[in-house]
Amino acid sequence: MKLSDRKTWNLRALLAAPTAFLLIFFFGPLLIMVVYSFLTPGIYGGVDWTFSHLNYGRILGWADTKYEKFDPVFLWIFLRSLRLAALTVLTCVLVSYPAAFWISRMPKARRNMAIFLVTLPFFVSLIVRLFAWVLILRPTGFLNQGLMGLGLTSEPLEFLYTDFAVIVGMTYVFIPFMFLPLYASIEKLDSSQIEASMDLGATRFQTFRKVVLPATLPGIIGGSVITFIPSLGNFIVPSVLGGAKVVMIGNLIEQQFLSARNWPFGSALAMLVMAAVLCLLLAQLKLARTTEERA
C-alpha cells in the first residue's frame, strides 16, 4: 500500500464518525421535515400519510377551496420577516462598522479588551437580556421616563410590541455576529492604503467610498449573511419584544408545531424560510466569485 493511499484511508476513518453524525442528526430531521411538508395534518396532531400540496398553497396563493379561501396573511408575515431581518442587518452594519473601525485602530492591549466587551453579552442568558429591554422600552420604562423628563414628550410613547422594539432587540442580539467578520476585514485593511489615497488627492469621504468600503465589502457581505439568517428565523425576540402584535415567521412555525399542532403546515413554512436562506447563500456565493474574478 502506498503512503498516500494510507493517508487517504486514515483521513476517511477519522471523518467517518462526524459524517455519520451529520447524516443522522442533521440531514435526517431535515428529510423528515421535507416529507412532512407534503403530507396532510392528522386530526389529533401528527400526520396522515396522504400527499398534499396545499400546505404550500396556503402560503403561496392556491388554497383548498372546499374548507378555506386563500388568505395572504401568511405571505405577509413572511414578507414582514424578510423586511425586519433586512432592517436588523442594516442597523447592525451602521452600529458595528464605526465600532469595528475604531477598535481596529486602538493599541493592541485595549483592542482585545474592546473585542471582549463587544462579545460580553453572549455570556448572559438571552431571556434575561431581552427582559431588560422590556424594562427599558415599556411605557413606564427608562426610555419613556427619560424622554418625559427631558420634556420631549408629555405622554409615554409606544415602543414595546412594535417593529421598532423587535429591530432594536434583534440588532442588540446579533451585533457580535456582524461585528466579528467586519472587524476581521477592517483590521486587515492596511492604514497606509488610506494614507495613499489621501496622498493622491482624495478627501476622507472619497477615500472611504473608493478604498475603505470596497476593501471591507467581503466583511460586510459575510456579516450581513450570518446576521440575516438567524434574524429571519428568530422567534424569541419577536415573542418577548413584539408580543402578539409583531409576529414573525419563526413565531408562526413555533405555533404550528406546538399549539396548532399542524406539523405539515409548520414544515412547509420552515421549508420556505430555508429556501429563502439558500437563495441568499447562492447569491452571496455568486457575488464572492465575481469579486474574486475581478480581484
Binding site: Q193, A196, S197, M198, D199, L200, G201, V211
Partner: peptide
C-alpha cells in the same frame, strides 16, 4: 494644508497599493 491638497505624492514603504483595484 491637509495631505490631499498638497502637490506632492508619495511612494510608500510597502507600496500601499489598492489591492481591490
Amino acid at each position: 494644508q491637509p495631505a490631499f491638497r498638497r502637490p506632492v505624492n508619495t511612494v510608500f514603504q510597502r507600496y500601499a497599493l489598492f489591492d481591490h483595484m
